[in-house]
């Protein structure tokens, strides 16, 4: 990376961290929610875009993380401990389920993850004495990184912002690493990688587990965020929404799913305040994205960028886009 590239990154981060000063208090809260969702959706984007594993049960890991904080938070106060428990529990769930499911592919993988998610949902729903069942339960633990409880909105925003940045750069490094390259290689052509002597299933399992862990952390943060958990966090509809956020944002990129999360949460929030007909409008938006925005919002943004930016620079931009990933079309099984 060149110095100018570093500069860009630092500039972006700075802008990002200054956000709260132009937002209302409500906006800051919504931004925190978007960031948590972005971590979750990035974790799903990782397995879809880079490992070709399309899951419809990812909310299970998010929900497990959230319930870990809710349930263990009754006994422990330490935020680090709770976050790590969430990470370990969801990671373990992802590892064990992955161990069984990874050999399925395509639609079968989609469905078996759906089934797994629904089973976890049913368990949480049924353990009424422990989890409150359908009613959900209040979260007692409050976030505290050692410097006193973080109870202000601004403080929580920075907590989620830091978590988001760590997740983002971690995933960036992961994808650029030799491990990441192998995973992408497996997605492009599994039989070739097998022929080259790669244990492709092990690679897939590893990336699935990492994704589950990250989803768990996002869930844990969400439990802190709302101070309330309910089985809706594990329901397949929520997995479906996350999947949509990934696709809307643009598959095969890291930023895409994060932007998709923001787009979805904010848009749905405002449209549903504006009209009861919000499912209709959201549906139309999805259809239009498919028809006109080949490759999701990221692609639309790139196209607009190309059209309006000075001509001489258009080529590198295109290349940059291609490097980050090339949209939906690249994912076929």
């Amino acid at each position: 990376m060149k110095a100018s590239a570093y500069g860009k990154h630092i500039g972006c981060i700075a802008l990002f961290l200054l956000c709260p000063f132009i937002l209302t208090s409500y906006g800051v809260k919504l931004a925190s929610e978007v960031l948590i969702m972005a971590i979750f959706v990035m974790s799903l984007g990782l397995i879809i875009g880079f490992a070709g594993l399309v899951s419809l049960g990812h909310a299970a890991f998010f929900g497990l993380g959230a319930y870990a904080v809710a349930l263990l938070g009754n006994h422990w106060e330490n935020t680090y401990l709770l976050l790590i428990s969430a990470l370990v529990i969801s990671g373990l769930a992802a590892f064990l389920s992955g161990l069984l499911f990874i050999r399925s592919s395509g639609a079968y993988f989609l469905m078996i993850t759906l089934a797994f998610g629904q089973m976890i949902y049913a368990i949480v729903y049924k353990l009424e004495d422990l989890t409150g069942g359908a009613d959900g339960m209040a979260v007692v633990a409050s976030p505290n990184l050692g410097a006193g409880p973080i109870d202000s909105r601004l403080g929580f925003f920075y907590l989620t912002a830091v978590a988001f940045l760590i997740s983002y750069y971690f995933l960036r490094l992961l994808i650029a690493s030799p491990f990441g390259k192998s995973v992408r290689g497996i997605k492009e052509n599994e039989s070739r990688m097998t022929a080259l002597g790669y244990q492709t299933r092990t690679y897939k399992l590893a990336v699935y587990t990492i994704s589950g862990m990250l989803a768990g952390v996002a869930g844990a943060l969400y439990a802190y965020f709302n101070q309330y958990v309910s089985p809706d966090l594990l329901y397949w509809m929520f997995s479906g929404q996350a999947l949509i956020m990934v696709i809307v944002g643009g598959v095969g990129t890291l930023v895409g799913p994060a932007i998709g999360a923001g787009f979805f949460v904010v848009l749905q929030n405002y449209i549903s305040s504006f009209t009861d007909r919000w499912p209709l409008i959201m549906g139309l938006i999805f259809v239009l994205i498919v028809l006109f925005g080949k490759g999701g919002i990221m692609q639309i943004a790139a196209l607009l960028w190309q059209r309006f930016r000075p001509q001489r620079n258009s080529k590198p931009a295109q290349q940059a886009m291609a490097k980050e990933g090339n949209g939906i079309e690249s994912v076929k099984s």
């Binding site: 395509g106 959201m282 549906g283 139309l284 994205i289």
Partner: peptide
């Protein structure tokens, strides 16, 4: 328009089911 593009199909058909239900 979306033959062979699985994820676009997911988004498209999900969108359609939203629309028709509403």
């Amino acid at each position: 328009r979306v033959y062979g593009k699985e994820l676009e199909q997911v988004l498209l058909t999900f969108g359609l089911s939203f629309i028709f239900a509403d």
